[in-house]
C-alpha cells in the first residue's frame, strides 16, 4: 500500500564525516497521519530528518515523496514540493523581523491549505503583537510558534518537526500539543521527532523507535505505551 504513503524512507544510510550514523532505516508516513520518530539522544533522529530534507546527502537508500523519488532534488525543491521542516534549533533569522520571517516562507499551494499572513496573525496573536520585532527578540516559546507558523504559511503537504517541545515550559508545551492536535484534526500529515514521550504518543498515530541509527521497533502509540521493555531499552522512559 505505498499509494497511501506521502513519505516513504527505504533502507536509508547516512554518514557524517566517516561515521555511519543512519544504518538502513525504513519507515513510511501515510497521508493524513502523524508518525512520531522517537529515540534517545544521539539515536540519529535529526540526521534522519536532515537526510529527508537533503541537508545532508544520504549515502544510499531511497526516499519517495508522493510516490516519486526525491533523488537529485535540492532542499529548496523539496520545500516547494510540500515538505516543511521545523528544525531543532528553530532557526529564526535574526536579521529579519517576525513578519519578514513569515513573508519569505509564504507560498500558495495548489492543494490550498489557506495559510496566509492574516491567518497566522489571527491564530497566533502573540506573533501579531510583535510582527515588527526582530525574530530573535522573541521568547523561546514564541520562537517555536514562529518556526511552526513559518512552516505552515508555506501551505505544505507535510510538516516535519524536530523536538518542538524541547526546552519549553510545561504551559507552552501544552499549547504546542494543542496546536499539533488541531493541525492533525484538520488532516495535516506530520513526522514528529520528540523526546517528550507523553506529547509524542498523545499526538502520533504510529511510532518508529530509533536506536543507534536503526529502527528498533514500530507500532501504534497505544502499543508502545504497553511495550515496557522497548520503552526501557530504547527510550529510557
Amino acid at each position: 500500500m505505498t499509494s497511501g504513503n506521502l513519505l516513504a524512507v527505504d533502507n536509508l544510510h547516512t554518514y557524517l564525516g566517516d561515521s555511519h550514523i543512519i544504518q538502513g532505516v525504513s519507515f513510511a508516513v501515510p497521508r493524513g497521519k502523524v508518525v512520531a520518530l522517537l529515540g534517545r539522544n544521539g539515536a540519529g533522529k535529526t540526521t534522519t530528518l536532515r537526510s529527508i530534507m537533503r541537508l545532508v546527502p544520504p549515502r544510499s537508500g531511497t526516499i519517495t515523496l508522493d510516490g516519486k523519488t526525491t533523488e537529485g532534488l535540492r532542499t529548496y525543491e523539496l520545500a516547494r514540493r510540500g515538505l516543511a521542516f521545523v528544525q531543532e534549533t528553530r532557526a529564526i533569522f535574526p536579521s529579519l523581523s517576525v513578519e519578514e520571517n513569515l513573508a519569505i516562507a509564504e507560498r500558495k499551494a495548489a492543494a490550498g491549505g489557506g495559510w496566509t499572513l492574516e491567518r497566522v496573525f489571527n491564530d497566533f496573536p502573540s506573533l501579531a503583537a510583535r510582527r515588527n520585532n526582530g525574530g530573535t527578540q522573541l521568547s523561546g516559546g514564541e520562537q517555536q510558534m514562529l518556526a511552526i507558523a513559518r512552516a505552515l504559511i508555506a501551505n505544505p503537504q507535510m510538516l516535519i518537526l524536530d523536538e518542538p517541545s524541547e526546552g519549553l515550559a510545561p504551559l507552552i508545551v501544552r499549547q504546542i500539543a494543542d496546536l499539533l492536535n488541531k493541525l492533525k484534526s484538520e488532516g495535516m500529515t506530520m513526522l514528529l521527532v520528540e523526546q517528550n514521550f507523553a506529547l509524542a504518543t498523545e499526538v502520533a498515530d504510529d511510532v518508529v523507535v530509533l536506536g543507534k541509527g536503526r529502527v528498533r521497533w514500530s507500532g501504534t502509540s497505544a502499543q508502545l505505551r504497553a511495550a515496557d521493555d522497548i520503552r526501557h531499552t530504547w527510550l529510557g522512559v
Binding site: T75, S95, A103, I104
Partner: peptide, 17 residues
Amino acid sequence: ALVRAGVDDRQTAETLG
C-alpha cells in the same frame, strides 16, 4: 529579505523553498 536570510543561515533559507 532573502539576501539577509541567506547571509544569516543559508540552509534554513533553503528549507523554506
